[in-house]
Structures are given as C-alpha cells and as structure tokens.
C-alpha cells in the first residue's frame, strides 16, 4: 500500500499573528513553524499503518524552502521519503492541482491530510484533489481502518458521527482521535537527514484567488466585571444592554 501524506507548515498555535509590508505579508519574525496539527494526526495514522501493514509513506508539502525543517520532522516521525513542490501555498485550487499532479505520477492508495490548514482554514484541498483525481473524498475523519482494499471510516458530522465504508483509493481529511501525535526519537532524527527529499517546480496555473491585504480584529472593549454576589445582574445586562437574549 502506498500512502501520500500532505502536510502544511504553519505558525505554532500559540502565535500572536502580526503582519508586515503594509499588511500584505505575515510577520514571520519570532514565529515558530510547525506541522499543521491536523496534518500531524494524518501522518501519525499513516506511520501506524506502515508499522502494521508495511505500507510506504511519502510526505508532500507545497511550500517554499523554509518549510524543510517541518518536512524533515515528518521524515523523523517515520515517513520514508518526501516531495516539496516549490511554491507558496496560497490558493486551495492551486495547491490541490500540485497534489493531484504528484498523485497522477504515482498511484497512491490513500492520500491523507489534515481536515484544514490552521492558517487559511479553508478545509477544501482534500475535496478538490478528490475531484481532480476522480476518487472519493471524506472529511473530517476521526477513525480509519484498512482491510484489503476497503476502508472503514468514522467521520464527524454536526452533532454526532457516522460510520462509512469505501474502497481505496481515497482522499481523507483527518482530525483527532485518528491517532496519537508522534514525537520523533533520536534514531528517527538521525535517519531523517539522509532520507530522500525531492524538490519539484509547480505546474503552471494562475492562482484563482490572491490576498490583497490582511487585517487584525479590533480589540474587544474593556471587560465589565460583575461581583459574584450580584451574578443575576448579568442576565439583565445580556437582555437589556447587549440585547443578545
């Protein structure tokens, strides 16, 4: 079985976001970049499947050269090799096109990725890849088991979950609790240095969307504190002042 895991390199979840160049670029100064948390779940499940069934795991990132530490970490966690498409991943259709182009060269049984990247939060790339390849896509996937050519899947839906069955190949957007996040060990870190990381140039499509500028939300006004002994006043304030109940 061949598994492709697509990962994003994103600011750590604790990052205070700021912009630069007249609000046209993220200010990367002091920002730690990590593997997308949802992508990390996808990778962890892929490595578990590798350990269980001997599957091969290839990591794919669409990103510029500064994403390579994240890719090396994925290799240290247990992926066999990696591909980086040398382009800024700013448009969902564009990114999906790059992934589909790689997937058309090698036929993967499973293409896994996070349910969404935590920078743009679109949650669309897996579905577009599925459409481009003409195979089913499912997201957000909470449980994944493979028996032969059939996948047993649990997907979260609003207010609950559903159990699904589908034949491979599939594209899946993953989330917890599909697997526990894996932390690379020393041997993994050493071997990751020599695992193959191929860099390819993007296939040429114009981006269908571009970001003109960014903006930070206006700060909330000062908090109005209500003494605990007068807690009931809160309900009056929500009713008469904020008018939300």
């Amino acid at each position: 079985m061949k598994i492709l895991v697509c990962v994003t390199s994103v600011p750590d979840t604790t990052t205070k976001i700021a912009f630069t160049d007249n609000n046209t670029r993220l200010n990367k100064a002091g920002v730690t970049f990590i593997t997308g948390p949802y992508d990390d779940y996808a990778l962890a499940r892929a490595v578990e499947l590798k350990e269980k069934t001997g599957a091969s795991v290839t990591v794919l990132n669409v990103g510029e050269a500064d994403t390579e530490p994240v890719i090396r970490k994925c290799l240290a966690i247990g992926a066999d090799d990696a591909i980086r498409v040398n382009a800024e991943p700013t448009d969902a259709y564009f990114v999906a096109e790059q992934i589909a182009a790689i997937a058309q060269e090698t036929s993967y049984d499973l293409i896994l990725m996070g349910r969404e990247s935590i920078d743009y939060n679109g949650g669309q790339v897996h579905g577009i890849v599925g459409e481009m390849l003409g195979i089913p896509s499912i997201s957000p996937v909470m449980l994944l088991d493979i028996e032969g050519d059939t996948a047993q899947i649990t997907r979260e839906i609003e207010g609950g979950k559903e159990s699904l069955e589908a034949k491979l190949p599939l594209v899946l957007g993953c989330q917890e609790p599909i697997a526990e996040w894996k932390i690379p060990n020393m041997r993994g870190i050493m071997t990751a240095r020599t695992k193959p990381l191929k860099v390819v140039e993007p296939t040429g499509t114009d981006k269908l969307t571009t970001v003109d500028s960014y903006e930070l939300p206006a700060p909330r006004g000062a908090v109005k504190m209500i003494p605990a002994e007068e807690a009931e006043t809160l309900i009056q304030l929500l009713h008469n002042e904020a008018k939300v109940i």
Binding site: D119, N121, L208, T210, V211, D212, S213, Y214, L216
Partner: peptide, 14 residues
Amino acid sequence: IYTGKAFAHNELKA
C-alpha cells in the same frame, strides 16, 4: 483566517 486571529481581503479572479 488563522482561526479567527486575523482577516484576509481576497481577490477572486476566476
């Protein structure tokens, strides 16, 4: 974007 930490002004060109 950034899970509610910021906004983007996107131009849709398609």
